[in-house]
Amino acid sequence: MSQDIYVVIEHLRGQVADISYTMLAGARELSPAAGGKVVAVLLGHNAKDLAKDFAADQVLYLDHAALAEFTSDAYQLALADLIGKDQPRAILFGNTSIGADVASVLSMRLGLPLVNSCRSFTSNAKFISQICGGKIMAEGELPSPTALVTMVPGGYSPDQGRSVDSPPIAESAVPALEALRVTLSKYIEPESADVDISKEPLLIAVGRGIQNQDNIELADALAQAIGGVVCASRPVIDQGWLSTSRLVGKSGKQVKPKVYFAMGISGAPEHVEAITQSGTIIAVNTDPKAPIFDIAKYGVQMDLFELVEVLTGQLKAKV
């Protein structure tokens, strides 16, 4: 048993994901109270080179051909074995397509408590989780003796988890990874898009508040009048009203326009994490408590349908 904080590094096709650095920053906040080290846990195959800028005291590297690319089954087996042997104070995962496939399964398999959607830690080892679309925070003592945690972005900047020095690397034994039930066949590249929203200076974003497909025209008209590009949050894309290439959010694009004009978007954490690099966010929403107003520079509390045509008309008159 140790008081170390383990961070399961997430990487995809040779690229370490930002959430890994966010978690390392969280682990650094947690480790003084726990009284242990920050240990980056890297699973892969011939992937040691990825461990170069982790703000960790140590890297544990698990190498196996079956870990070359992420699959839930292989990661679960390797990590269950590691956690069973080392029994660290906590293991941090991303609340992502990688971490969320593993953490809950390990909680049930190993009988260890799980804290989900943790945004930050306090200096006295409490977790603060973000639930209900960012409207509620839940705080508690980090469960003992070993806690599994999934983390969301927002509490720490990834830069806080980067270091110029490379921490020492130790290899850790990998158990037999056999009879795997999940295998990767191939990666499918994103469809090539007519526009790359991550490079556009002015984005007109629509969310659930746009209500139906016909209303997308209103956003299009506004975008045309001002010279911007329309993009959307997940509910709009899932309805098929706009193509996936226009998705802003956790599973879509990160954007950094000069101006992000958000209409009918409440500001769920999965969306917000992808727009924080925007120059100026302007939000239109009927709900005065919508979380989008907490990150927007300017806000309009109004039904978007009352506003959008008037605004489009005025823009047309000016241009």
Partner: peptide, 26 residues
Amino acid sequence: DGAAEIGRMFQPEAAAHAEMIEGSPE
């Protein structure tokens, strides 16, 4: 079994709030 105990819940206090633009649609 398998969950952490919650000590308290609260509504997040935003570090900042948007400057609200008011008036008629026009």
